[in-house]
Design a protein around this nucleic acid. Sequence first.
DNA 1: CTCCAGGGCAGCG
DNA 2: CGCTGCCATGGA
Length: 267
Amino acid sequence: MYKTKIDNLDLKQIADSGQCFRWKNTGENEYTVVAFDRALRIKQDGNEFELDCDEADWNNIWKSYLDMDTDYAGIAKLIADGDDAHLKEAYAYGSGVRILRQDLWEMIVTFMISQNNNIKRITNSVDLLCRRCGHKIDGSAEGGELYTFPKPLEVPDEVFDDRSMGFGYRAPYLKEIYGYGANNPDWLDNLRKMSYDEAMESLLTRKGIGKKVANCICLFGLHHVDAFPIDTHVKQLLDKYYSDGFDFERYKGVAGIIQQYLFYFEL
DNA sequence: CTCCAGGGCAGCG
DNA sequence: CGCTGCCATGGA
């Protein structure tokens, strides 16, 4: 058990913010998080957190995952000092939203599934995929068994042909990316070394990854915080509240986080 | 019944 | 280039 205080972090807000599809609400103010082939139970009481791990795991894994190295207080000040009334309202509503540093492969596959899809169906497909092709994580009996996210070579082709997975028309894209990942084992590490623009270019060469999905992968899987994914909701919100244009220049370097506040508020 | 969901692709002009 | 129709699927 590790205890710590964290500001600008709300488990429920993050769980509902549409960036992670494998968080489970396992109790009052308690979530079970699955990432990097591990599970972690987190309990929140205000800004006090109890994490079901030791201090070494916190320092080595979860501290980074929860984006403790980003200055969220500074972003709060940037918003407060500005004159964007709608953004201030959005921030007041979801100041506990963060951009998690999630597993890159999981983000690639998950956001390919997400295209022209809804969060409930995305969650269901991801869950079915993990259950069928991942392996069980130790000590995950209570609150349902937990599984790792299937890596390349861990998903047989027939899984993509199975209609009950709910992949719909995206199934061939997923089959292709799993094959590409298997044949190009250095791809993920190379992506991690690239700039935002380079990563976008590499991602866009894959079938089923367009501009929006590539931006989500850059933001959630590579932590390129300037990535600003524009989906149907963000497009609507930009039209509604920012018909004169959004001030990307002011929020350069944190635009992706701002986008997430706006997105979460719009939901 | 239609419309929509954290879109992208191919086929046009 | 931009525009359009289509893609599979379940819920509203």
